Simulated scan of single mutants.
Amino acid sequence: METNGVSRRQVLIGTGALAAGTAAAHFTGLLKSAVAKDGKNEKWPWPYEKLDPQKTAEIAYNEWYRVFCGAAVINSVFSQLAEKIGEPYSSFPSDAFVFLEGGQVGWGTICGSPAGANIVANCIIGPRISGADEGHHIAADNMQFYSETALPTFKPASPKITTEIKTTVSDSPLCHISVGKWMKATGYALGSPERKDRCARVAASSAYHLVEMLNAWKDGTYEAKSTFSSAKENGITGQYNCDECHGDNVPEAPQMPKA
């Protein structure tokens, strides 16, 4: 059989080659996935040298104006460790986490500052499924620190805004609530230089606190502080200020039957 000058045999050979190539590509992909999963970056903990919290906060503050909150916190730690140690920090794509800005691409959910800090802690120490739970506890402490502390706590050496930046307590890890409360307390709009500098200082405050905990972990003196668990207390994941948004209309979660 001839089809536009191509014989049936040629078609079959071409089809077989395509199938073989597809199978080879698929198999190669499986090998690459296996290598990635068991690669050296999944050996925890990663090497860590103690950092200066003040220097780290200054880096985070200035980085905020380039990559915003989450990536600024990540860069403030990993850029220093890349200089001190090298890999796996040198090739870590910190800038990829710019999407954490605005509570995840502007959706106002978890603020990028604690989110970035949690990424750092769990990359260095490892996830709790790896056998060490300090990274998990540091993440919980990051959330509680952000929620309960009058932020920002950090004042840069060379601030980009000379206006006094008011501090507020968010009682929430959500960007929407944290920024919203600050805007209400100060009267500054979202796009104002003052609001931007406030968030840069919040990122710096989070980086400072993170390094304090990582240094304590390195010394073997870290002790977890957060004991809050909405899942245990309320039967559903959440934060501890439900009434503020829900008012009296807080839905009750169905409870698991007792064994």
Rank of each mutant, 00 (worst) to 15 (best):
V6M: 11
S7P: 01
L12Y: 14
G14P: 09
T15G: 13
T15V: 13
A19S: 14
A20M: 10
T22P: 03
A24L: 15
T28Q: 14
K32G: 00
S33R: 15
A36K: 06
K43G: 05
K50S: 11
T56G: 05
I59H: 15
R66M: 01
S79Y: 05
Q80L: 05
E83Q: 15
K84A: 09
E87F: 06
P93K: 06
P93E: 09
F99N: 11
L100A: 07
V105S: 15
G108S: 00
T109H: 09
G112C: 01
A115W: 06
A121W: 07
G131T: 00
D133E: 14
D133H: 09
E134D: 15
G135K: 04
N142I: 01
P152T: 03
A157V: 08
A157H: 02
A157Y: 02
P159R: 08
T162R: 04
K166A: 10
V169C: 07
S170Y: 07
P173K: 02
L174C: 12
S178P: 08
G180L: 04
A189N: 08
A189L: 03
L190F: 12
P193G: 07
R195F: 13
A204Q: 06
L214W: 00
L214M: 10
G220A: 04
E223N: 13
A224M: 10
S226P: 02
T227E: 14
T227N: 14
S229Q: 06
E233F: 10
E233A: 15
N234K: 12
N234F: 12
H246Q: 10
Q255C: 03
